[in-house]
């Protein structure tokens, strides 16, 4: 059952993300990316990371992608649909990335043999620790330092984005 859902989500993710990188219309690509994020949040739920799943929907789909759509519409993106979409070397890129994908696939799907580190653990170890309370308390105690740095990072990004995107600064 779980496996079935996983395959469903995985197929959705791969299909939608392939479309994202091949579509010529930016808006369509953005909407497909939203779809990808939904499937991903489904995968997170399956992995017992329900908080992360909700954050994925709330921040990625509800926040970042709206920002994307907004900017795309501001930038008059329809013009670019008619232009050439791919680099000349794209064929080369496809070949290289296919080789890379095959390699990763082979290594990763080598199964347990490729992961001697896990031999001490059973495959069903996952205790699904993704509940909000545990995550919250670990974030504010053990991970306090990265948390604070992340807050500064967000402040930096906010100020930077405003400075760059503001139309005119009155002088």
């Amino acid at each position: 059952m779980e496996l079935l859902f996983f395959y469903l989500f995985a197929a959705g993710i791969i299909g939608a993300s392939l479309l994202v990188v091949t579509r010529s219309n930016v808006i369509h690509a953005a909407l497909l990316l939203v779809l990808t994020f939904f499937f991903m949040s489904g995968v997170f739920v399956l992995a017992g990371a329900e908080f992360l799943a909700v954050v994925q929907v709330l921040l990625y789909a509800g926040g970042i992608m709206v920002l994307y759509l907004f900017s795309i519409m501001l930038m008059n993106a329809e013009v670019s649909v008619r232009l050439r979409q791919f680099h000349r070397q794209s064929f080369f890129t496809i070949v290289v990335s296919l080789i890379l994908a095959a390699e990763i696939w082979w290594k990763v799907l080598g199964g347990g043999a490729a992961y001697p580190a896990f031999k001490g653990f059973s495959w069903t170890l996952g205790t699904t620790p993704g509940n909000v309370e545990a995550l919250g308390s670990i974030l504010y105690t053990k991970y306090l330092f990265p948390f604070e740095v992340a807050s500064i990072l967000l402040l930096a990004a906010m100020i930077g984005a405003i400075v760059l995107a503001k139309r005119t600064i009155d002088r």
């Binding site: 939203v34 929907v57 709330l58 789909a61 509800g62 709206v66």
Partner: peptide, 10 residues
């Protein structure tokens, strides 16, 4: 609820 309702804007 917050997450899902934020999707209406799409």
């Amino acid at each position: 609820v917050l997450a899902v309702s934020s999707l209406g804007v799409f």
